[in-house]
Design a protein around this nucleic acid. Structure first.
Length: 599
RNA sequence: GGAGUCGUAGCGCAAUUGGUUAGCGCGUCGGCCUGUCACGCCGAAGGUUGCGGGUUCAAGUCCCGUCGACUUCGCCA
């Protein structure tokens, strides 16, 4: 037997027992006549004390001491010894096992280690690329072990919950067919079919609908998904969704099921009791009040519309914007006027210009009972008073105003709102806010391609009461779709699907996907819809994002064991890599131009 | 595709406006230490400042290119 206990479980009740522990040497504190080591595994740390009392005799004690002195950081050790209570005053409260230590009888060096490039025993974080290059060492850090354990718990709770509700876990293929709607696909060349490609799934969307048609009624999968788009702190090229689909359900049923899961996760992982049902907000409201379809509701600072006032005022920038049918809106930071010097505002302005493409950033500071700003001279007293009242400003407040198209002002004000809230610490970073966003538009006009595109995906059903609008005013038609938003992140989303063949064809035609293309790409779905498709709908939760948010981390990489860089590379394995000429030949593939690489 | 920040010893960082031999902490190696808690003390080794070019009497520092990491806009049905 390699071990009797883990390095995290011994307490003073174990005193007197002979135990065997295995783990990594975290670090050693050599005192000369005695030496302490910390033995670490994923359960914790236990101190082993090499003193003249160790072993069965003074000679053995000396031999053990000499041996442990040859050990270095990250050696893999096996220690057999007696659990003893630490001497009075020698406890370490920071350690769960801090009341005891182990007096060794035997020490086995199970394996040696080179000097590690990063030290798991040091809390200072190595740089991102070093962490990724030596990921197995980075993963030894307790923080990473905690994060992956938390991720496991989320999945476990989800599996228990869905199992209780009668869901079946079904696996769907990784090798599928490319469906160019949406994100770019990762492609896999076929050897047997020269010149043809599989695509890795962006989501199991079509398969789960087919499972409903097949009668499986309630499906769940921990599904790996792939999207070949540029990455962010909360986006990886491969990521995991908790993917679900249900038959004979309305929106309410799906959202209610998910409410229950979220509540259980919040309770068991975060220790938070949630009020159900979770609050809901319409997409239109979210855009109007927060400028974003996944607003962070941990703080207020809602957007305030000034367009009607702008229309009447003499300031040409505001007035011109309003007259052109665009919007003048503001965010107000209460009591923050003195935190934004002229220089800070200039910096904020160029940041907004660079990031969101706004032409400018206007501001007012509340002072001496009025509003002060370089642009104040363009407004008479009456307008200043009206603006001040609308913005509910008092002395010491500062308002930032964006005059632009609705879309641009949404982007910029959302960005501004998030940045200000963070800078001004308007919320507790350990707090959580959960909400649903509903009533999404079904379609949006893609000006570049001059066609309608699905906001969600082309299999999303319209709200029943809006279906007629597809013929008269497609823009106004709302979808039976819903997103779950946590702390300003879209943590998941879903919809009721179209189960009627004729309606599905109609949507394809609205999306300017002709019969032939539809048949070629989605023919199997259209076929299946002719054979008794039940009403159905579902949802997918982004597991990585959920774990990141619950763990209070800023990057999705910190909850993924082996993540990729922003350029979708694996610094540890070197993926993606070149392949043999022979492999390429078998696949009938020729490369025109390969990327130059440093190594 | 665009923008920004960064790249200095194994790791984390410093180096004034361009100016002597590029420093500090951790780690490593050697020595000392019987109750440490990321122990402490003494000593030593360790650098082509990511790579290439340019400006200059002089470049870690300025300029151009390039590679890489991060953040972000576009993109992500």
């Amino acid at each position: 037997m390699f071990r009797t206990h883990t390095c995290g479980e011994l307490r003073k009740e174990h005193a007197g027992q002979i135990v065997t522990l295995c783990g990594w040497l975290d670090h050693q504190r050599d005192q000369g006549g005695l030496s302490f080591i910390w033995l670490r595994d994923r359960y914790g740390i236990t101190q082993v004390t090499f003193s003249p009392e160790a072993g069965a005799s003074p000679e053995e004690a000396e031999a053990l001491l000499q041996k442990v002195r040859t050990c270095r950081q990250e050696f893999v050790l096996q220690v057999k010894g007696e659990v003893i209570q630490r001497p009075e005053g020698g406890e370490n409260k920071a350690l769960a096992t801090g009341e005891i230590e182990v007096r060794p009888l035997e020490l086995v060096i199970l394996n040696r280690s080179d000097v590690p490039p990063v030290q798991p025993s040091i809390p200072d974080l190595p740089s991102e690329d070093v962490r990724l290059q030596y990921r197995y060492l980075d993963l030894r850090r307790p923080d990473m072990q905690k994060a992956l354990a938390l991720r496991h718990r989320i999945v476990k709770i989800m599996r228990d919950y869905t199992d209780e509700l009668g869901f079946l876990e079904v696996e769907t293929p990784m090798l599928g067919r490319s469906t160019p709607e949406g994100a770019r696909d990762y492609l896999v060349p076929s050897r047997v079919h020269a010149g043809k490609f599989y695509a890795l799934p962006q989501s199991p969307q079509l398969y789960k609908q087919l499972l409903m048609i097949a009668g499986f009624d309630r499906y769940v999968q921990v599904a790996r998904c792939f999207r070949d788009e540029d990455l962010r702190a909360d986006r990886q090229p491969e990521f995991t969704q908790i993917d679900m689909e249900m038959s004979f359900v309305s929106m309410e049923d799906v959202m209610g099921m998910m409410d229950g899961l979220i509540a259980r996760l919040a309770k068991e992982v975060l220790g938070i009791e949630l009020q159900l049902p979770l609050p809901r907000m319409s997409y239109a409201d979210a855009m109007e009040r927060y400028g974003h379809d996944a607003p962070d509701l941990r703080y207020g600072m809602e957007l305030i519309d000034l367009t009607d006032i702008a229309k009447e005022c003499e300031f040409s920038v505001f007035r011109g914007t309003a007259d052109a049918g665009n919007r003048v809106r503001a965010v107000v930071a209460k009591g923050a006027a003195d935190k934004y010097s002229r220089k800070a505002i200039d910096e904020l302005t160029s940041w907004a210009k660079e990031n969101f493409g706004v032409k400018g950033l206007a501001f007012f500071k509340g002072a001496e009972g009025t509003l002060q700003a370089p642009i104040a001279k363009f407004f008479n007293e009456e307008f200043i008073a009206r603006i001040k009242e609308r913005l509910e400003m008092t002395d010491g407040d500062i308002a930032f105003i964006i005059a632009d198209t609705f879309e641009t002002s949404c982007r910029a004000l959302n960005g501004l709102r998030r940045r200000l809230a963070k800078e001004l610490e308007l919320y507790d970073p350990k707090s959580f806010s959960f909400s649903w966003i509903v009533d999404f538009p079904m379609l949006e006009w893609d000006a570049e391609e001059e066609r309608w595109v699905a906001v969600h995906h082309p299999f999303t059903a319209p709200l029943p009461e809006d279906e007629a609008l597809l013929d008269t005013d497609p823009r106004a038609c709302r979808a039976a779709a819903y997103d779950i938003v946590i702390n300003g992140f879209e943590a998941g989303g879903g919809s009721i699907r179209i189960h009627d063949n004729a309606l599905q064809k109609k949507i394809f035609s609205l999306l300017n996907i002709d019969d032939e293309t539809a048949k070629d790409r989605f023919g199997f779905l259209l076929d299946a819809l002719r054979f008794g498709a039940p009403p159905h709908g579902g949802i997918a939760l982004g597991l990585d994002r959920l774990a990141m948010i619950f763990a209070g981390l800023d990057s999705i990489r910190d909850v993924i064991a082996f993540p990729k860089t922003a350029r979708a590379a694996d610094l540890m394995s070197g993926a993606p890599g070149l392949v043999d000429e022979k492999q390429m030949k078998e696949l009938s593939i020729k490369v025109e131009k390969a990327e130059k690489t440093q190594n």
